[in-house]
Every structure is written in structure tokens, then in C-alpha cells.
């Protein structure tokens, strides 16, 4: 069963002078097993939006349903939240315990699992994110490097075995290798756990490569939702919205503006090379 968002609106400080509409009239469905990307610049409402997916925020109007559980209802929210794992941008906001293993076990223990089960799940989660328990289990989370902290935070959520994994800027602040590794980890988690991944990212290259569908948010509204092909065919609009487009999409756009007929679905280097090869040979 999917996540269904219907006419979601969220206002901060409603009915005051400072009322601010962060998210307005968003309707979309995220299906099981999808890799769903969300892009939008700072202040576009994407953070507010994803916090509705596990009930950390409640809609001012509209509804969010996770596997049939209405997230506005206090009792149903508890069950819905258990399905949605949320990894925030900065691991420093969640790591607190004295060892990595204890920290990863925090979630499973809160779910009411007994100590041994929680431990098993945590060890498994650590292995999945590439933190070998032999080496990391007894380390303090505060001694870890930036990339390792990110993995520990991810493991803390994976250990709860969510059906939906929501990731807020999972690669921000990492070096290029760290970014590649985390993205590969997310991909393998999707394979192994068969979970739905919802990823917010600034990096268009990463979203273009990984996501099956992308939602573009602008000024609190859903500007567009569709496959990368559909979204990056609107490169011109994305740029005018102050969003980054993948560089190859920019190149294609630049060539179009110089009067060449570059197909709309070219936004990766691989596709560009293929197209250019065909184009040069045909002539």
C-alpha cells in the first residue's frame, strides 16, 4: 500500500500576522518500491513536506495516509510512523549514546523489542550500511568521521525495519567518494530490504541517476512530478526557478539555444555520448 498525500497544506502560525504558508495544496502518491526524489531550493517547503510523511508535523488541511493509516489521527499515527523511517540531514542531531551499537539500538528498543532482538537487528543494520560491527560496535559515535556518522544514523533507522525510508540530504557535506558510497549504500538497502526510498537532495546529478520519479517543489507548491526524463526536459524552467539542473542537461539546453536540435531526454553523460555518436555518424 502506498503513501497518499491529498491536498496537503501546512501553515506556520496560522491566523496570526506572521502566518506563513510553507506547503500548499500538494497531492501525490508514492508507490511501494519506488525511489522517489524530491528537489527544490531552500525554503521551497520540501523539509516541511517530508515531516508530514511520518507525522512529525500535522497538516493544517488535507491528509496524509501511510498504508491506510491516517497520520492526522493520534492512534493511527503511531502505527503509521512505525512504517516510515526518517533520516535527518545532520547525524549530529540524533547520535547520543556511548557506543555506536547502543545508539543504533535506541530505535528498536523504543519499539518494545527485547534486548537480544534489538541487538541482532542493530548488528544487521550496521553491516548493511557498511559499519562492520567488529570494528565499530563499541566505538563512541562521537569519534566517527563525517561519513561514518552518517552511516550510523542511517543504521539507527534501518534497524527499525521501516517500509519507507525518508532521507533528507543524505549526502550533504560529504566528499565526492563519501557521496558515491552513501548513494551506493542506499541502492543496496533498497534491494535488500525492498523498501521505498524517498530522498530529498540538492544534487541534481544524484537525483537524476538514482530516482525513478522526481517531485519538484517551488514556493511551497508541487511544481511538477514525473520521471527524470519528464522533469529534466524542463531544464529551462528549473534553471529559472533557481534550481540546479544536471550539468549535461544544461549543456543540452545551451546547444538548443544555439539552434541545435538536442532531444529532451538527454541529461546524463552516457546519453549525451550516445546521441552525439549517432548524430555524427548519420551525417
Amino acid at each position: 500500500m502506498p503513501i497518499i498525500v491529498e491536498k496537503l497544506t501546512h501553515k506556520y502560525m496560522p491566523n496570526t500576522d506572521n502566518e506563513f504558508v510553507a506547503v500548499q495544496d500538494i497531492s501525490l502518491t508514492i508507490d511501494d518500491g519506488e525511489f522517489f526524489g524530491i528537489i527544490g531550493h531552500t525554503g521551497s517547503g520540501k523539509s516541511t513536506f517530508i515531516q508530514h510523511l511520518n507525522g512529525l508535523m500535522q497538516p493544517t488541511s488535507g491528509s496524509v495516509t501511510v498504508d491506510g493509516f491516517d497520520m492526522s489521527d493520534k492512534k493511527q499515527r503511531v502505527r503509521g510512523r512505525a512504517l516510515v523511517g526518517m533520516v535527518f540531514q545532520y547525524p549530529d542531531y540524533q547520535l547520543f549514546d556511548s557506543t555506536v551499537l547502543d545508539d543504533v539500538s535506541f530505535g528498536p528498543k523504543n519499539m518494545g523489542l527485547d534486548a537480544e532482538e534489538a541487538r541482532q537487528r542493530s548488528l544487521e543494520a550496521m553491516r548493511m550500511v557498511g559499519l562492520e560491527p567488529e570494528h565499530f560496535a563499541e566505538k563512541s559515535p562521537f569519534e566517527l568521521s563525517g561519513g561514518e556518522k552518517r552511516r550510523a544514523a542511517l543504521a539507527g533507522i534501518i534497524a527499525m525495519r521501516p517500509k519507507y525510508l525518508v532521507l533528507d540530504e543524505p549526502m550533504a557535506g560529504l566528499d565526492p567518494s563519501g557521496r558515491r558510497e552513501i548513494l551506493a549504500t542506499i541502492d543496496s538497502l533498497r534491494e535488500e530490504l525492498k523498501c521505498t526510498v524517498i530522498m530529498v537532495s540538492h544534487s541534481m546529478e544524484d537525483v537524476a541517476r538514482a530516482a525513478g520519479r522526481i517531485a519538484v517543489m517551488n514556493d511551497g507548491r508541487l511544481y511538477a512530478v514525473g520521471t527524470p526524463d519528464e522533469i529534466f526536459s524542463k531544464t529551462k524552467e528549473l534553471i529559472s526557478m533557481g534550481l540546479d539542473a544536471p550539468q549535461t542537461a544544461r549543456l543540452a539546453q545551451e546547444l538548443r539555444e544555439r539552434g541545435f536540435d538536442v532531444p529532451q531526454d538527454i541529461y546524463t553523460n552516457e546519453r549525451f555520448v550516445k546521441w552525439l555518436r549517432g548524430r555524427v555518424k548519420h551525417a
Binding site: 565526492p176 558515491r180 550539468q247 549543456l251 553523460n269 552516457e270 555520448v273 552525439l276 555518436r277
Partner: peptide, 22 residues
């Protein structure tokens, strides 16, 4: 890449095109 870094996307494209002889 061996130093955990990367090249800009356009440099990557350039290298691919050179390899293809384009």
C-alpha cells in the same frame, strides 16, 4: 578518484568523448 575525489561532470564528459574518438 583514487584520492576520494572526482572530476567535474563536464570533464568526465570530455574524457568520454575523447575515448569515443568524437
Amino acid at each position: 578518484r583514487a584520492l576520494r575525489l572526482d572530476v567535474p561532470v563536464m570533464v568526465e564528459l570530455r574524457d568520454m568523448l575523447v575515448r569515443e574518438g568524437l
